[in-house]
Design a protein around this nucleic acid. Structure first.
Lengths: 201, 201
DNA sequence: AGATGAAGTGGAACGCTATTCCGGTACTAT
DNA sequence: ATAGTACCGGAATAGCGTTCCACTTCATCT
């Protein structure tokens, strides 16, 4: 149940884990989750042995990359609300979250593959992101910039569903659907450019 | 767009393709879509060379197995309505369809993997199954055994969504959700044992 | 600072699988 | 029956995943 005391890694090892994660994220995005292990190790500038030392099974790497993405998303919440007003912060964060889900199609597919290694991920997901979105939502709602009758869990789930790949349609389709949902979340008249259907990049 | 004239295969070749398809279906179900090619060839009683002759890429085999399953589902429609009354035929067919989707988790995952080889499948799916379910639905609705305000496409999609694996839950979960949907489809009082939540096998 | 042992590293080696290739086999048309 | 050819099987090749261990680097103790 509790966390093991993981006797902090040696400095170089920690650096390598970081490079590996970075490399894996990039390679997964380019060549898919089934990319050769060597490709990842090379990009990270380490030997394959090192990769397997830190991530014995491929699912360990995949899980780590996903968790890393989740953490980054969670951290973005407070950062955004510090620099923008509540309504804007909320919509910006939701788009950030969408980008995270939409970019990682291969990862999401792996996640749904039935491998028990990923069983705990959904819980981690909610535990980490729920409070973040909850705070954002509450701040926006109390300022009248968002409806108050929807909870963070439902919203997180709904967007995740909408980001599911639809055969025959591309990412743009998913982004449009999410944008629509977000528009529905914000009372008319409060909408700003951030929430629209226009695409950047 | 049109079918190639495939200069009908030699008799033994056709037999082999059949065995291969049968074997692949079984192996995919047991060991997943990434099962060794040799396992499939052995079970089919042919050499690997023969497998690759007929299905050069793995996606060709996967596609063939899925199409085969779709065809079987489509053919089951008329058969069921010939032997049962409309309402029963409808629910039996929907459960048959659910079983097809739920059993082929690996296949569905592959299908959503983004491989362009599968791009045409969704269309084939609808083209083949839409009319079948449409007929079933219409017959049941006109006899008062089903609501009349839902179309075959929506229903096909909805069930497909519900059959998507949910991490942390098993097949039973999906079957329950679908059963629920089917119950909702049939007016109270018309329900028969076929549509309930009880499981056979 | 220098020494010491534990932690961590890299890549060769091994086993397994995909995919190709072609001599041999068996079906079909004449 | 015979020739011609479509098709078959499985050995051979290529490449990837994973393991293993001699070597290197870091952290700690004196």
């Amino acid at each position: 149940m509790s966390e093991r005391a993981p006797r902090r890694l040696r400095a170089d090892a920690r650096r390598n884990v970081g490079s590996l994660l970075e490399a894996a994220k990039s390679v997964f995005a380019t060549s898919g989750v089934d990319a050769p292990a060597k490709e990842i190790a090379d990009l990270a500038g380490v030997g394959v042995g090192t990769l397997y030392r830190h991530f014995p099974r491929r699912s360990d790497l995949v899980k780590a990359v996903i968790e890393h993405g989740i953490d980054a998303c969670a951290d973005a919440g407070p950062a955004l609300s510090a620099e923008h007003e509540p309504g804007t912060a909320l919509t910006m964060w939701l788009h950030r979250y969408t980008e995270f889900l939409a970019t990682k199609r291969g990862l999401a597919t792996a996640l749904h593959s039935g491998d028990p290694a990923f069983d705990e991920l959904p819980a981690y997901f909610m535990r980490r992101l729920g409070p973040t979105l909850g705070a954002l939502l509450e701040a926006a709602a109390s300022g009248g910039a968002a409806r108050a009758d929807i909870g963070p869990k439902d919203l997180l789930h709904a967007i995740a569903q909408l980001c599911q790949p639809v055969p025959g349609e591309g990412l743009a389709y998913n982004r449009r659907m999410v944008a629509l949902l977000i528009d529905g979340l914000t009372p008319a008249g409060t909408r700003d450019a951030e929430s629209g259907l226009s695409e950047g990049t």
